[in-house]
Simulated scan of single mutants.
Amino acid sequence: MPEQNVSAVERALKILDVFTDQDPDLSLKELAERTGMYKSTISRLAGTLESCGFLMLSGRGRYRLGPALWRLGSIYRRSYRMDDIVRPYLSILVKESGETASFYVPEGSNRLCLFRENSPSSLRHHLEEGAILPCDRGAAGHVIRAWGNGVDDRAIEVLGDRFAQSEGERDPDISAVAVPVLDRQNHLLGVLTLSGPSSRFTKDKRDNLLVSLQRYATDCGNQLSA
């Protein structure tokens, strides 16, 4: 492939990469500011991305991610057999705890909520699948850092304990407990997490659920490694 075509692909991917949960739609000016590209270049690339379903243009002249990305994301999840293996454990955890259960995987320097089952309670920690969160805050983030490149005291502690807890780190009202899902060579496959309102998901409750969470994480890892 000619070098100029490779460069065009890289710029197109850069456009897609600047969208976040906090900024699901962006104007042409905002895209230019975030990518450092000229508006004319973005308009040309965005037109191609739109025609292929990777971007959508609203009536207000703002861009948002298109349905083609959801289709590819669904294929990605199914291709790893994770969907059929992980979701039953999330359902069991929600039934046992009454809280929200999630499965996170590393996404660059962040973490991606790949699967999630929300608590049946109206007061709950609600988050959509596909959300990308930082790894410097929250129980799941600490686990990913510990099994990744984290070398600080918190990461070393999590490695030794083989779990992490957090209270009000990412959201002042949310507590969580997370454990690693490892393959048979102890490589991180993902993180199994329970989270809920701190007023209800107290440390005592988290401690009581930890053994079950670790057992399900081990079973899940063994199945994913089979």
Rank of each mutant, 00 (worst) to 15 (best):
P2A: 07
P2N: 11
Q4A: 14
N5E: 15
V6L: 14
S7H: 12
S7Q: 14
E10W: 04
K14N: 13
L16D: 05
L16K: 06
D17S: 15
F19L: 10
D21V: 04
D25A: 12
L26I: 01
L26K: 11
S27Y: 11
L28H: 13
R34Q: 15
R34H: 10
G36T: 09
M37P: 03
Y38V: 00
T41W: 03
T41M: 08
I42D: 09
S43W: 03
L45T: 05
G47P: 07
G47D: 07
S51H: 11
C52F: 09
G53R: 01
F54E: 09
L55F: 04
L57F: 05
S58P: 08
P67R: 09
P67F: 05
P67N: 10
L69F: 02
L69N: 01
W70M: 07
I75P: 00
Y76D: 08
S79G: 11
Y80W: 02
R81N: 12
D83L: 12
D84C: 02
R87P: 00
R87V: 15
P88Q: 06
Y89V: 05
Y89K: 04
S91K: 09
S91G: 08
S91T: 10
I92P: 00
L93K: 09
V94I: 06
K95Q: 14
E99C: 02
A101D: 09
S102G: 08
S102L: 15
F103R: 06
Y104S: 03
V105C: 05
V105E: 06
P106M: 12
P106L: 12
R111I: 11
L112I: 01
L112K: 08
C113Q: 08
F115Y: 15
R116H: 07
E117W: 00
E117L: 12
E117I: 15
S121G: 04
S122L: 13
S122P: 09
S122G: 08
S122D: 13
G130E: 07
I132Q: 05
P134C: 07
C135N: 11
C135R: 15
D136L: 05
G138F: 07
A139V: 06
G141C: 12
H142L: 06
I144W: 01
G148D: 09
R154W: 02
I156M: 15
E157N: 10
V158Q: 00
L159S: 07
D161K: 15
A164F: 09
A164L: 06
Q165D: 11
Q165G: 10
R170S: 13
R170A: 12
D173R: 07
A176P: 05
A178K: 08
A178P: 06
V181M: 04
D183G: 03
R184C: 09
N186H: 11
H187N: 13
L188E: 01
V191C: 05
V191P: 06
P197K: 06
P197S: 09
S198H: 01
S199K: 02
S199I: 12
T202N: 04
K203T: 14
K205T: 14
K205C: 04
D207P: 02
D207F: 07
L210I: 12
Y216L: 15
A217M: 07
T218E: 14
T218K: 14
G221F: 01
N222A: 13
Q223H: 10
Q223V: 00
S225Y: 02
A226P: 06
A226W: 00
